[in-house]
Design a protein around this nucleic acid. Sequence first.
DNA 1: CGGTGAATCTACCCGCGAGTATAGAATCGA
DNA 2: TCGATTCTATACTCGCGGGTAGATTCACCG
Lengths: 228, 228
Amino acid sequence: MQDGRGDRQQPSPWAPAAQRDEQRTLKREAVLLTAVRSFNRHGFHATSLEQVAEALNITKPTIYYYFSSKDEILFECARRGLERIREVAAARRAPEETGLQRLTAIMRDYAIIMTEDFGQCVIRIGDHELSEASRQKQRALKREIDQTVRTVIEAGIRDGSIVDRDVRLLTFTITGALNWIAKWYEPGGRYPPEAVAEQCVGLLVDGLAPRAGSEGSPAGCPGQPESA
Amino acid sequence: MQDGRGDRQQPSPWAPAAQRDEQRTLKREAVLLTAVRSFNRHGFHATSLEQVAEALNITKPTIYYYFSSKDEILFECARRGLERIREVAAARRAPEETGLQRLTAIMRDYAIIMTEDFGQCVIRIGDHELSEASRQKQRALKREIDQTVRTVIEAGIRDGSIVDRDVRLLTFTITGALNWIAKWYEPGGRYPPEAVAEQCVGLLVDGLAPRAGSEGSPAGCPGQPESA
DNA sequence: CGGTGAATCTACCCGCGAGTATAGAATCGA
DNA sequence: TCGATTCTATACTCGCGGGTAGATTCACCG
């Protein structure tokens, strides 16, 4: 991972500089993971950094050696969750498939992210817990994701694979159903993440009312594309 | 003050006792309403009772004259929201209609409650903000609602008006989509509550994929009841 | 070994907000 | 008009937790 820096070809036996950096990264990571799990389980305010430190066998000032504030920790957790979503959403931007097919793929990945630590954090922690600055940054990330999803939905409406409804409300309803997974899902419970994703997406695509013809979702027979 | 309570038929001219009680109730109400709005807007922890008091042109001790703790205020707010949901859910328990018809009615009312102050409070305020005791009571209320909804869904699956899927996941997905309204809805925005409810429920019933036959929701032509 | 810097700890500060003690103002009953 | 009660305000306590100052330990390098 040499980025500009430290590219000195000097093969000193057991280069310690890189090790140091790696150690630091590893420890930051450990703090983040412990923190996000506590945030998710007990809530942000109910989690003191002392508790996090204790769980890591260190003390509070050590955490402040790696992070500048509790807000930074929370934001970094949320950022990772959002980053993951952004990736899967962006991965399906290319229009080789129908809008519904692309949206279905995004929804499925989205649902699974909601069962992960950093993904849950995005939903479980309220906006008001972040500082004003962090909240703004978070909003920007969310908007970007929202925009991507919306674009896919619009494409689906145009090609006839998605029902013609208000795009904004469509997006809210879908993301709501999926976001909610983060609230009730518990690892090791009766449903594996894939099953959750499968079922939720299936319901959103097919609807509550039984379809006349087939049983399964019409993923293979979308409305005929009629790109103007 | 005999707690057999105040049933003395004595019609004293302009019974002041009743007026007193009414005044007290009115003021409690005002505190609750101001508090819940601030909770919803700024979050529970970011709302101090001093702020609430200031908004009411009173001081903090006055609030404590009407409530015993901040937790009691929050719980009372949430309780009202849940109570409203419980009512609408229970109202549609009788099986004169198909399961889907009953569920649709519940969902619609549920969605509208999510646009109201106390309804929003139930969703926007995390479980961890309540005291242990209050949280337990809240859970009980939520479970009761959940159970009612689930029963309706099961009836719908039996009579064929609702797709045969895992009831638990079905419930989570539906409530998730509807609960999320509380997060993004803003009064005076572009969508009136009825429109929100209409669209969300419509999508959940019909699904994202266009239906072959009709355009609208098949509210009038549910799957033929086939009660064994 | 002795110095240098990274990493961690002990011991503290400090502000905020929930909750309270208590006194004073208004209201009512006689 | 005089208590008694209801209601509200002033002025406080107090604990919790975010954040910091400064000492200390340790690892490596010369």
